[in-house]
Design a protein around this nucleic acid. Structure first.
Length: 431
RNA sequence: UCCAGCGUAGCUCAACUGGUAGAGCAUCCGGCUGUUAACCGGAGGGUUACAGGUUCGACUCCUGUCGCUGGAGCCA
């Protein structure tokens, strides 16, 4: 079978007779004329059938065909301003490949629960088409940026013996009778990898068994985690800023039609230029207090705090030097104030919250041993991790970037469930 | 896990202070030669989530169960 012509490339075939394969997105009729909106996964084109110009069978089929039936349509490509997309197909024939049963998702409105139960079909809609194409572009942009910067992609394991940041939020797996966990982060593995390859990153699914039920949470989400040897906190912030600014620029450059489908306010994305504001945790608390938030020193930010912080700037803001107790055990302490961790979060504008979390890692063996003890972590499970400090320790930094939250922000979609094809959420695993 | 709200036709919703179930879309039939979520006419479609209670009478009030939505904490 020859690969069918794609609607996305139809403009190159203007005036020519072509055959398209796809699904019936919608149809309309008026007397002796039939309009079939053909969707082929790359785009949508309106096909027009006139009773006198097509075989009787084809004309009748254009009438009786059901939404999402698969068809082959032949006709002549014609520029037409009346048609969405600018091009139209003067249909000469319509052949049925498979007749669809009555399709549950109609062009009218539907509720969230209904759409989520039909997620496998919902993916065919224009909005999801746009979001998934932007997601793909964003991930491609991350790979390109890191590759061009000399990073080596290193995949980290999904089955892990120990918790990265505490055991309460892990999914358990039976591993030949041994209890192991689905990974929560590739971070601990990235650290030895960056001693081998200097600049490394991983991109993969991570799992959190948190009982979180908000628009910002999934139990399975994808995380991009770069880790760099001989990089301090400031360098880590530079990297995060460069990466995000580049990726947003790429989406603007290559996916503006999709942003248009989503009716995204482009000026909000165009503002995302370097430099991003950088404020300390202490300054951030002052800012929040000035806006009426009641925070005690040492408190971590709540969802509302993050929203306010994000809305205070027209581009992502980097908040650094957090109180050590609210951050992970492996964060290096600030030499000028040991109560502070050399950690950084990037908070997206428009209330999308934290999209990046990371910082400089503790590279002193004694300090790290102390932290493991303080956090009541199983020391033995971390021996290999401590080896990174035993054999030529070095300052290093890195972060994790949440793919879905970033996609949600760039797309301007309200809920993270739309940013991944098949979202896994609290007690929701079908389809 | 906690707090709040919701559950009526395939879908989205309506039904006053408790008075006996209704609209649009979808489906089916018919009409229309340029439709844009097309439109117009007609038809079929209901154990009002489930179980119990109060009442002459329950979609409506009460109790419980289940499901969903939004939010919180935790986090990316």
């Amino acid at each position: 079978m020859e690969p069918a012509l794609e609607i996305a490339r139809i403009a190159k075939h203007e005036g020519k007779k072509v055959a398209l394969k796809g699904w019936v997105h919608n149809k309309r009729s008026s007397g002796k004329i039939r309009f079939v909106l053909l969707r082929d996964g790359t785009g949508i084109i309106q096909c027009v059938f006139l009773k006198e110009q097509v075989p009787e069978q084809a004309f009748e089929l254009a009438d009786s065909i059901t939404q999402e039936s698969s068809v082959e349509i032949s006709g002549t490509v014609r520029e037409d301003k009346r048609s969405p997309g600018g091009y139209e197909l003067s249909g000469s024939d319509l052949k049925l490949i498979s007749l669809a049963e009555p399709y549950p998702i109609t062009p009218k409105e539907h509720g969230v629960d209904f759409l989520m139960k039909h997620r496998h079909l919902w993916l065919r809609s224009q909005r999801q088409f746009a979001i998934l194409r932007i997601r793909s572009e964003l991930i491609k942009a991350f790979h390109d940026f890191l590759d061009d910067s000399g990073f080596i992609l290193c995949d980290t394991p999904i089955l892990t013996p120990a918790a990265c940041e505490g055991t309460t939020t892990l999914f358990n797996v039976d591993y030949y009778g041994e209890p192991v966990f689905l990974t929560q982060s590739g971070q601990l593995y990235n650290e030895p990898l960056c001693a081998a390859l200097r600049k490394t990153y991983c991109l993969g699914p991570t799992f959190r068994a948190e009982k979180s039920k908000t628009r910002r949470h999934l139990t399975e989400f994808w995380m991009l985690e770069p880790e760099v040897a001989f990089l301090d906190l400031e360098g880590c912030m530079d990297l995060a800023e460069n990466l995000v600014a580049y990726a947003v620029g790429r989406v603007l450059e290559r996916r503006s039609p999709e942003l248009g489908i989503l009716e995204r306010d482009l000026s909000k994305l165009e503002a995302v230029k370097k430099p991003f504001p950088r404020i300390t945790y202490t300054k951030a608390v002052e800012l929040l207090k000035s806006k009426g938030r009641n925070l005690k020193p040492g408190d971590d930010f709540g969802a509302e705090d993050e929203t306010i912080l994000g809305q205070s700037f027209d581009r992502p803001v980097l908040v650094h030097r957090y109180p050590a107790p609210v951050k992970a055990f492996y964060m290096k302490r600030d030499r000028s104030d040991p109560n502070l961790a050399l950690a950084v979060d990037m908070i997206a504008p428009e209330g999308y919250g934290e999209i990046v979390g990371g910082g400089q890692r503790e590279d002193d063996l004694k300090e790290l041993e102390k932290r493991i003890k303080e956090h009541d972590l199983p020391r033995q499970a971390f021996e290999w991790y401590l080896d990174v400090r035993r054999y030529g320790s070095f300052p290093h930094s890195g972060f994790g970037l949440g793919i879905e939250r970033t996609v949600a922000w760039i797309c301007g979609v309200h809920h993270i469930r739309e940013t991944i094809p098949f979202p896994r959420m609290l007690e929701k695993i079908y389809p």
